[in-house]
Design a protein around this nucleic acid. Structure first.
Length: 486
RNA sequence: CGGGGCGUAGCUCAGCUUGGUAGAGCGCUCGCUUUGGGAGCGAGAGGUUCGCAGGUUCAAGUCCUGUCGCCCCGACCA
C-alpha cells in the first residue's frame, strides 16, 4: 500500500494505461458521477455528475441564446403515425425505438414511441406555426431525455436513456439552413476546445455516417487515449426532407408557397464521457476548471487542540464563493492524505491546504491537479490576501494545460499517409486519426471497415497533389480522417 | 445479436474440485490516540443463509437442470 501511495496511485481504480475500459468504468463510479440503476442500460446521474452536466448546459445554453435560439419543450411520446412519415428517418431509428402500447389497463389504439429524437414532433408543430416567410427563421432548442434501445451500454458513452440538447430550426432558404448548420458546428467546436478542453476535428460526414433523413451531416470528433474516435456533437442540414414529410410550408415574399429548410443538432452527455476519458489519469478524473462542479476544495489540517484551520477555510471559502468561484470545504473527520486522494480521484482542479503553520503565517498551499505530486510547481504557498487572484490564475492555467496536453495527443496521433498498406495497418492498430485522400465511395469505406474496423470520421477539401484514393486507388474526391470509433 | 466472465456482508472476494449447516480484507458504528499524500489500537454491528426456481440427497453456497440479471469483448448507433 505504501508503494502505491508513493507512486501517487489511487487504490480504488486500475491504472488508466493498463486497461482504459476498466479505468473508465471505475472512475465514473468511484468519482460518484453515476451509479448503475435497477434498469438495464440506464444510469443514475448523481449530484456530482449532474453538476458537471449543469455546467455544460450553462455554457452551451448561453451560446445558443447568444445566437438567437430559444428553449422550448416537446412531448416525450410520439404517435407512431407521426414518426413514420419520413421513410429514411423511421427506418434508421426503427431498431432502437421503445414503444408504449398500454395506458393504465387499456391497450392503445395507436402505439406511442418514446422519443429517440424529436424531428417528427417538432416538424409537426412547425407545420402549424409557420405560415409566412415572416415567421422564419424559427430557432428552437430543447433540453431533454431520449431513449434508444441499446444492447451494449456504458456510462455516458452509450446508455438507453440519455440527456442531451436537440436544436431544431426552420429557414426559408437552403443557404440559410446550411449557414445555421455550420454555425452550430463551429459553436460546438469552439465549446469543445475552450470549455471542454478537447481539441476536435470538425467537418462533413460520409454518406454512410449520415443522420437518417439528413441531406448532410456534420460532426465534431475527439480522439480517445486508445486511438478510437468519439463523435461528440452533430449538426444536420435536413434540407426539405422533413418539410415535405411533415408539410411545413410558408408563403414567400414572391407569393409562392414553399417548403421550409430545416436543421437539427445535438450534444449529449456523451460529451462528458469524452472529457472523462481524454483528460483523466492514473489518479482519476481531471475536470477542466470551466466545467468543474467544484473548482477548488479546501482541506483544513487540524491537530488535536488546534482546529483553527477549519474556521480559516470556512471564512476564505465564503469570500471566494461570493466572488463567483465554485469552492467547498472538506471538514470531514478523515486524514488529510485521504482527502487529497479522494479529490484527486474526483478531478477537482485545485486543492487548498491550510494547516496550523499556514494559520500562523496567514498563508495557504495551492495544489494543482494537472501536475503530479513531486512534480515541480504542483504546490505553491500564497498569502491569504492573494488567494483569489492566485486561484483564478491557476484555473486558467489548468484549463489551458489540459487543452494543450489533449492537443499534443491528437496531433501526434494524426497521421497523414499515402501508402495503402500503411493505411490499413494504421487503421487496424488504432494508431489514431488516419488522414488520407479518399474516393468517397461507400463500397470503399465498407471494405476498409471490414478489414480494419475503421470508418471515416469527417471529410474535408482535397489538398494539392491528391489524385488517387489511398485506400482503393480510385480517383480521390476528399481528404478523410479514418479511425475506429466508439 | 454472437463470444467470454460474474452473481456469497455496503465493497472486493475466498469457500465449490472432495456436500456436513457462512468466512477474510476493506468499509461502517463507538471509544482513545492521531491528522501537511489514503493512520493505529480496542470494542461492536452487519448474511430474512449464498441471484431466482426446480431437482438429487439424511444433509446443498457446494452436485444437476432451468431461468433472470449484470459486466467485458465484438456486429449496429449519439
Amino acid at each position: 500500500m505504501s508503494e502505491a501511495l508513493a507512486g501517487g496511485a489511487v487504490k480504488e481504480i486500475p491504472p488508466k494505461s493498463a486497461d482504459l475500459s476498466a479505468w473508465y468504468t471505475a472512475v465514473c463510479l468511484r468519482a460518484q458521477l453515476v451509479s448503475y440503476s435497477p434498469v438495464r442500460g440506464c444510469v443514475v446521474l448523481r449530484p456530482y455528475g449532474f453538476g458537471l452536466w449543469e455546467n455544460l448546459q450553462r455554457e452551451l445554453d448561453g451560446r445558443f441564446k447568444a445566437t438567437g435560439h430559444e428553449n422550448a419543450y416537446f412531448p416525450l411520446l410520439i404517435p407512431e403515425s407521426l414518426l413514420i412519415r419520413e421513410a429514411e428517418h423511421v427506418e434508421g431509428f426503427a431498431p432502437e425505438v421503445a414503444w408504449v402500447t398500454q395506458g393504465g389497463s387499456e391497450e392503445l389504439t395507436e402505439r406511442l414511441a418514446i422519443r429517440p429524437t424529436s424531428e417528427a414532433m417538432v416538424g409537426t408543430m412547425y407545420a402549424q406555426w409557420i405560415e409566412s416567410y415572416r415567421d422564419l427563421p424559427i430557432l428552437i432548442n430543447q433540453w431533454a431525455n431520449v431513449v434508444r434501445w441499446e444492447k451494449a451500454t456504458r456510462p455516458f458513452l452509450r446508455t438507453m436513456e440519455f440527456l442531451w440538447q436537440e436544436g431544431h430550426t426552420a429557414h426559408k432558404s437552403a443557404q440559410e439552413a446550411r449557414e445555421e448548420t455550420l454555425r452550430i458546428l463551429d459553436l460546438y467546436r469552439e465549446f469543445a476546445e475552450n470549455v471542454a478542453a478537447l481539441p476536435v476535428y470538425s467537418g462533413r460526414k460520409s454518406a454512410s455516417e449520415r443522420f437518417p433523413g439528413a441531406v448532410e451531416t456534420f460532426s465534431i470528433e475527439a480522439l480517445m487515449p486508445d486511438g478510437k474516435a468519439l463523435q461528440s456533437g452533430t449538426s444536420h442540414d435536413l434540407g426539405q426532407n422533413f418539410a415535405r414529410a411533415y408539410d411545413i410550408k410558408f408563403t414567400d415574399a414572391d407569393q409562392a408557397v414553399k417548403y421550409v429548410h430545416t436543421t437539427s443538432w445535438g450534444i449529449s452527455w456523451r460529451m462528458l464521457g469524452a472529457i472523462i476519458m481524454a483528460h483523466g489519469d492514473d489518479r482519476g478524473l481531471r475536470i477542466p476548471p470551466k466545467l468543474a462542479p467544484t473548482q477548488a476544495v479546501f482541506v483544513p489540517i487540524v491537530r488535536s487542540g488546534d482546529e483553527r484551520a477549519v474556521e480559516v477555510c470556512n471564512r476564505l471559502a465564503r469570500i471566494l464563493a461570493d466572488a463567483g468561484l465554485r469552492v467547498r470545504v472538506d471538514a470531514r473527520d478523515e486524514k488529510p492524505g485521504w482527502k487529497y486522494s479522494e479529490w484527486d480521484l474526483r478531478g477537482v482542479p485545485v486543492r487548498i491546504e491550510i494547516g496550523p503553520r499556514d494559520v500562523d503565517a496567514q498563508t495557504a498551499v495551492l495544489a494543482r491537479r494537472d501536475r503530479n505530486k513531486d512534480e515541480s510547481g504542483q504546490r505553491q504557498t500564497v498569502a491569504v490576501t492573494e488567494i483569489e487572484a492566485a486561484l483564478r490564475e491557476l484555473l486558467v492555467e489548468i484549463q489551458a494545460s489540459l487543452y494543450s496536453q489533449a492537443r499534443s495527443f491528437l496531433q501526434s496521433h494524426t497521421i497523414a499517409v499515402a501508402d495503402q498498406n500503411e493505411f490499413f495497418d494504421l487503421c487496424s492498430t488504432r494508431a489514431g486519426m488516419i488522414d488520407i485522400a479518399w474516393c468517397e465511395r461507400a463500397e470503399c469505406e465498407a471494405e476498409v471497415k471490414r478489414q480494419t474496423m475503421a470508418t471515416t470520421r469527417v471529410l474535408r477539401e482535397l489538398q494539392e497533389g491528391d489524385v488517387r484514393c489511398t485506400a482503393c486507388g480510385e480517383p480521390a474526391k476528399a481528404r478523410a480522417y479514418f479511425a475506429q470509433s466508439y
